[in-house]
Design a protein around this nucleic acid. Structure first.
Lengths: 64, 64
DNA sequence: ACATAAAGTAAAATATATATTACATATAGA
DNA sequence: TCTATATGTAATATATATTTTACTTTATGT
């Protein structure tokens, strides 16, 4: 579950904590998603994408 | 969690059962996802998109 | 050197996605 | 009418995402 969340977050100069608050999860959840160790829910992915002003494909899609 | 899975599946003349088998979940899971009653995992969304030859955005993204 | 913010990490608890089993309904074909 | 296929739906069980709490590390500023 590699993704581009961390890059997109840093581009917006946003901390894990503030991203977490805006999408209503804990800092730990964001950390694990960025590390690729979680398989997050679609709803959470959408919320993250929305806050970071990206789309699902931008952050999570990879051509097989 | 509205989405366009059912449309994409029908376009490929594929049954819930066969889609389910190709992404390794049960028929019921596909049915509930199509109804929008589940909040599927990212991994499952990616697998569905891959089998249906779509991207995440094609099937699951909606502009807020 | 000290303090603070940000991030890494881990164990246990909780919430929920998904599986399993089972039964019902609708439709199309023989 | 009978049969088979596809789908809808529900209850219970299981796997796992996410929370909670807590400790640690790293960097930055004073």
């Amino acid at each position: 579950m590699k993704n581009r969340v961390k890059m997109a977050r840093l581009e917006k100069l946003m901390t894990q904590q503030s991203l977490a608050e805006q999408v209503n999860v804990t800092r730990q959840t964001i950390g694990l998603i960025e590390k690729g160790e979680y398989n997050p829910s679609l709803k959470l992915c959408c919320n993250i994408a929305y806050v970071l002003e990206k789309t699902l494909d931008d952050l999570f899609w990879e051509v097989h």
